[in-house]
Design a protein around this nucleic acid. Structure first.
Length: 847
RNA sequence: GCCCGGGUGGCGGAAUGGCAGACGCUGAGGACUUAAAAUCCUCCGGGGAUUUUUCCUCAUGUGGGUUCGACUCCCACCCCGGGCACCA
């Protein structure tokens, strides 16, 4: 179909609503009046609302936009409610895509990044979000990343940063190391979901997140109610606290190996252990095999196992395999001699890398022992069932129920009592001890890439590893690196960066060439917003004390572990350094849904993005904002619909025409505010509707965050006003004014530009930005007449109209006169009456 | 396997134990117009009865339960999405 010759947006505008003109006009006025610029002011209640800072890549699409629209509604409502609102924006500007794009386009990562930032910034400004742009930060600037380095040095001093050669996750596409948190779907790179992570042994820097395992877990309690339950659960899972005991088994011979320490959560089942199983990578394996009769066969199997175990190959479905070492261990509780095996399902990374196999009481052990014909011995008998028999057992008894048997002096104890007693005994006799272990690992932050924060240490042949002194910060990235995307860190092949002088001995030294994981940047950026220009410290603690914690944080669920766990860790470190006083940085977290098209999240690689800027050009920012808020509740995913946004566009035009039509009669009228006494039925109906709407919209904004139903209510209000047209007929200008003003104020947080324009059309000369959120008038909202639903035995059979507050007697009399009701109730005995004033009467009849 | 969400018209969704389907989209019909766009009005879950007004009945994934009354609470199951996963 040929393009119509239309003016304005969408499929054509008829009213005077011209979003392009209006939006530019009000954005200019807001900037001139510095409406969104805030300062810490202890005399005012504060509210810190923040959307997760974007990584500026590609173009900004409606998925990004929705996130900011949600935050902006909250920021504007809180501002109207009298809070001193901090609402900043910045850029997560370091990272691999910039480096890869730079290699591809033969440009500098900084150029690529800054172009994207300019694009993102232009679009955000175009949408009129209420940011204090003076506080904008970009993490790739030395003014910012010098504080990453400063924090690193503080952690180094406290032993919270350390260097270690270890097996790491290596992404062959990123050409760099990944943190455990960046490995997804059981072994794939979080950026390249089709690329399997490899295992490499590399010397790298770690931050000691495990020093805070307990606090990171325990403090989740403080977040209950403020954070989504599932995020708390995911973090709990990730930290993975496990209480149990470590027990040492002596090796029968050769005495040179061992003792072997195992970890178990079920020490109570130790009399049922029929083997010890070591991880293939356990350091004792080679020693045990030396001179062992099983050696030849075992070594072939071991070699194969060590090779395959490098890959994280579908572990859950992998067949259990193992072999006997030819050696035996002694159970310290009863001296029993049990065989030592190696098993592919035992992980060196967890616990001690060795387990005791108790086949009668653990599924995996049972599978393993059955496969290799190892004995199965029941040591806990459940009560009130047939006694279990190890020879025939097909499912292990894993529950903490029943009583111990075949366990010497511990027989007849309940499992939990036995755990306590046996742990104490092991400790007393010196072969074991109660211990708590965690799944959480330390955070590996070394990245072998250019576009990140240089790690501020150097290596001196004389003095070894030497930290860069504070006065040497920032360690700035060299301006012209050779980027190839291959091999070692690009910094290593940049001599002017690498070669430096040792601050201790004055001799030549080499700088560390790894850079920091970009999650370091985002772990504390929200503190910097409080004091973005500070060049003496990362921030002024007094300013942070005023603004923190963040009252409302908004972002995607994808960061449930990564960013949100690192941020919590960073906060605790800063607290221990003495920079902040709180334990947790984020009081409330909201995880919004994604915008999808064709059932999948918008992304450049899928080619299903709807550009935010295009939408602003076509319909205007307000329509774009309104639609993303209206189409679904904010926590749910939203399917993009072009017809849907047309509907939002039509609605805003309808509101514009409504107010345009009445602006002349209303402009000069006195603002009656809420005490306008209605003098006609029409006035009464309008005032009632508008105050009822206000009551419910206020609650949707404040407590429920149901922006979609708030918009539906405002649409209903607008429909009601249309239904009462012509207003000139029986509605005084001051009442018209009150109704239209309240409509405008309710729209203001969502469609701020249009609302300002309407506010001006209604005769206001000071901006709407000065207006407060209106209070609803209970008196005017009250219905005088209500319709009561009459049920007979729970089924609706009629409705009666009565004055509000009518008593049961009166309603009953009217109800029985209703033909629908009498048809079902006449001649039957009423057994029971349930009366809910102003709502419902249920007559329960016999038979 | 374990742990979270979720399942309501053609579609997005509404309903905080009290009229299921608000509001919007799509669709149909009408008004206006030379015409189109825009705008305005009406209808729009299924089945049945009724000439009209209207009435009955089924229906919120499935099956039970609690309740005067259940989309909402409880139990079991099915399906979809997400997280974790030989974690000892």
């Amino acid at each position: 179909m040929a393009e119509q010759n239309t003016t304005g947006a969408g499929a054509g505008a008829v009213s005077g609503y011209d979003p392009q003109k209006i939006e530019a006009k009000w954005q200019k006025r807001w900037a001139e009046a510095r409406v969104f610029e805030t300062e810490a002011d202890p005399s005012k209640p504060k509210y810190y609302v923040l959307e997760m800072l974007p990584y500026p890549s590609g173009t900004m699409h409606m998925g990004h936009m929705r996130n900011y629209a949600i935050g902006d509604v909250v920021a504007r409502v809180k501002r109207m409610r009298g809070f001193n609102v901090l609402h900043p924006m910045g850029w997560d500007a370091f990272g691999l895509p910039a480096e890869n794009a730079a290699i591809k386009n033969k440009t500098h990562p900084r150029t690529w990044t800054n172009n994207n930032i300019a694009q993102f910034q232009r679009v955000l400004r175009r949408f009129g979000f209420s940011y204090d742009w003076r506080r904008e930060i970009s993490t790739c600037e030395p003014e910012y990343y010098r504080w990453n380095q400063w924090f690193f040095l503080r952690m180094l001093e406290r032993g919270l940063a350390y260097r270690k050669k270890s097996l790491v996750n290596w992404c062959p596409k990123c050409c760099t190391v990944l943190a455990n948190e960046q490995v997804v779907n059981g072994g794939f790179c979080w950026r390249h979901e089709d690329t399997r992570v490899e295992s490499r042994e590399i010397e790298q820097w770690f931050l000691k997140t495990t020093a805070y395992s307990d606090q990171l877990l325990d403090d989740l309690k403080e977040l209950e109610g403020g954070w989504p339950e599932r995020v708390i659960l995911m973090q709990q899972n990730w930290i993975g606290k496990s209480q149990g005991a470590k027990v040492r088994f002596a090796v029968a011979d050769p005495a040179s190996a061992g003792p072997i320490e195992i970890f178990t959560t079920r020490i109570d089942t130790i009399y049922g252990a029929t083997a010890l199983i070591l991880a293939p990578k356990h350091p004792f394996v080679d020693k045990l095999l030396e001179g062992s009769p099983a050696r030849a066969e075992a070594e072939a199997k071991l070699k194969k196992m060590r090779q395959t175990s490098v890959k994280t190959e579908d572990l859950a479905t992998l067949e259990k395999e193992g072999f006997f070492t030819g050696r035996f261990a002694l159970n310290p509780f009863n001296g029993e001699k049990i065989p030592i095996w190696v098993g592919n399902f035992v992980l060196m990374e967890y616990g001690t890398g060795a387990i005791m196999a108790v086949p009668a009481h653990d599924q995996r052990d049972l599978e393993f022992c059955r496969k290799y014909g190892l004995p199965v011995r029941v040591v806990i008998q459940p009560e009130n069932t047939e006694p279990l028999d190890g020879a025939t057992l097909s499912a292990p008894h894993e529950e903490h129920t029943g009583k111990l048997v075949n366990s010497g002096r511990y027989n007849d104890l309940a499992p939990d009592a036995a755990i306590r007693k046996m742990t104490a005994d092991a400790e007393q006799k010196g072969f074991g001890k109660g211990e708590t272990i965690f799944r959480l690992r330390d955070w590996g932050i070394s990245r072998q890439r250019y576009w990140g924060t240089p790690i501020p240490v150097m290596y001196c042949p004389k003095d070894g590893m030497v930290p860069v002194p504070d006065k040497g910060l920032p360690v700035v990235l060299p301006p012209n690196p050779k980027l190839t995307g291959e091999g070692e860190s690009p910094l290593a092949s940049t001599p002017e960066f690498v070669n430096t002088t040792c601050p201790k001995c004055g001799g030549p030294a080499r700088r560390e060439t790894d850079t920091m994981d970009t999650f370091v940047d985002s772990s504390w950026y929200f503190y910097r917003y409080c004091d973005p220009q500070n060049d003496k410290a990362p921030f002024d603690s007094a300013k942070v004390a005023y603004w923190f914690p963040i009252d409302q944080y908004i972002g995607g669920i994808t960061h449930a572990i990564l960013h949100l766990l690192y941020s919590r860790f960073w906060c605790k470190v800063m607290r221990d350094i003495g920079l902040v006083k709180h334990d947790e940085p984020i009081a409330r977290l909201f995880t919004q849904g994604m915008v999808q098209k064709g059932g999948v999240a918008m992304s450049k690689s899928r080619g299903n993005v709807v550009g935010a800027e295009e939408m602003a050009q076509k319909y205007g920012a307000d329509t774009g904002r309104l639609y993303t808020l209206f189409a679904a509740p904010p926590e749910k995913d939203l399917e993009w619909s072009e017809e849907g946004i047309e509907g939002s566009w039509r609605f805003l035009n309808r509101v514009y025409r409504l107010i345009e039509r009445h602006s002349n009669s209303v402009r000069g009228a006195k603002s009656e505010s809420a005490d306008a006494a209605a003098t006609s039925a029409k006035e009464k109906a309008l005032l009632r509707k508008v105050h009822q709407t206000l009551r419910r919209v206020t609650s949707d904004f404040e407590s429920r965050w149901h922006f979609n139903s708030a918009i539906a209510l405002i649409m209903e209000l607008s429909n009601e006003i249309y239904a009462q047209e012509p207003l000139e007929d029986g509605v005084r200008p001051e009442v018209q004014k009150e109704v239209l003003e309240l409509l405008t104020l309710m729209l203001a947080p969502m469609t701020p530009h249009l609302a300002e324009e309407l506010w001006e059309m209604l005769g206001h000369t000071d901006g709407l930005w000065n207006a407060s959120w209106p209070a609803f008038n209970e008196e005017l909202a009250r219905e005088d007449e209500v319709e009561i639903v009459v049920q007979v035995s729970g089924r609706v059979r009629g409705r009666v109209k009565v004055a509000a507050g009518a008593g049961e007697e009166e309603v009953l009399k009217l109800a029985l006169a209703d033909p629908g009701v009498s048809h079902h109730a006449d001649g039957r005995r009423i057994v029971r009456k349930i009366f809910v004033p102003d709502k419902l009467l249920n007559l329960v009849v016999a038979g």
